[in-house]
Structures are given as C-alpha cells and as structure tokens.
C-alpha cells in the first residue's frame, strides 16, 4: 500500500487516485472497488453513481479548477485532493486557502502531484494536512520539510494570527 504523510506522520493510504488520460471518455472509466479519488469532471458527470457506491469517494481538483465547483458537496466529501502539476505551479496553495477560509471545509486536504519536501511547510500553512510525496522521493526524509521553520510572519490557516498580533500579545503580557 502506498504511504502518505497525514497529520505529520507516515501512514498507509487506502485511496486509489484515478487519473484518466485526457482523451479517455469519462463515461467509460472503470471504477475500482477501493475508496477512490476522482477528477472533478468524473465527479460532475457520474455523481449519482458515485454516491450510490458503498465505498468512499472523493474528488481531486486540478490546479485550474475552482473549489466553488464542489461547494455544495463539501459536507459529503471526506477529503479533497489538490494537484500540483509542477511544484512551481503555486495555484494549489490558493485553492487550499479558499477551501478552508471561504468554504469552511474541515475535511482532509491532500496535496498530490509534484509534492516535494521543500514545499510541505508552505502547503501545511495554507491548509493542507496530507501529503502524497512524489513517489521517487524518500517520504521519511520528506517529513523534515514540515519543520523547516519554527514561526511565520503571516496569518494563514495553521496560525490565524499574524506575527505582529502575537508579538503585541507577548509584549502586552510581559508589561
């Protein structure tokens, strides 16, 4: 079973990611019997069928897809994956923040695709809590990427107060 970083630990992962090639007819994609992560287009085309299955199903968003497209289904989805086609394509960070801050999504947000150690810190700050590290990278060593920095200036999902507010609290407490 593939491994994944979830909540700062390495775990076995039972989800099967479906990534049909662009030229494959959505209606003909075969659905395995395991929990599946399907692309948005498949979700939209075969929603009733997917919901009728006894096994869990969730959606992954491509970097150019908007979370609003699944806004009404968020309560049904235990996890949403966001794809990084290249790690230098930073759209996924804004997608995760939008899921958390605009849509209030509380389930798992998983980074998939070109997910590498040196981006995990930023991803977590933006609301990701699971990381499917690129298969050719050592997942054990990638864990260190979550610990690159011990603090941050900005407000984000992991720390809603920007540093200037926390500094003010600290100096207020000291005074």
């Amino acid at each position: 079973m593939p491994q994944i970083i979830r909540k700062d630990r390495i775990e076995e992962d039972g989800w099967t990611l479906l990534r049909p090639a662009a030229d494959v007819e959505i209606a003909t994609v075969e659905l395995p019997a395991t929990p599946i992560l399907v692309p948005l287009a498949l979700w939209q085309a075969r929603r009733e069928e997917l919901l009728a299955r006894a096994t869990p199903v969730s959606v992954w968003l491509a970097a150019n897809e908007n979370p609003s497209a699944i806004a009404d289904d968020l309560a049904r989805l235990p996890l949403i994956a966001v794809d990084f086609p290249k790690f230098t394509d930073g759209r996924g960070y804004s997608i995760a923040r939008s899921l958390r801050d605009r849509h209030g999504y509380r389930g798992e947000i998983r980074a998939i695709g070109d997910v590498q150690r040196d981006q995990l810190h930023y991803m977590r700050r933006c609301g990701f809590d699971a990381f499917a590290v690129r298969a050719d990278h050592d997942i054990e060593r990638a864990l260190a990427g979550l610990k690159s920095f011990s603090d941050s200036y900005q407000a984000a999902v992991d720390e809603p107060l920007p540093l200037f507010r926390r500094r003010a609290q600290a100096s207020g407490a000291a005074a």
Binding site: G90, S94, Q119, C126, F149, S152, Q154, L163, F164
Partner: peptide, 16 residues
C-alpha cells in the same frame, strides 16, 4: 518593513 515581513516566506505566494 511591514511589507518585508508579510512577503517573507508568504506560504501562498512562493510560486506565483
């Protein structure tokens, strides 16, 4: 300086 701090390691905007 406020902008420097805000922009330094901004988690969402490192890969614009």
């Amino acid at each position: 300086e406020l902008i420097r701090q805000w922009s330094t390691f901004h988690p969402e905007f490192a890969f614009l």
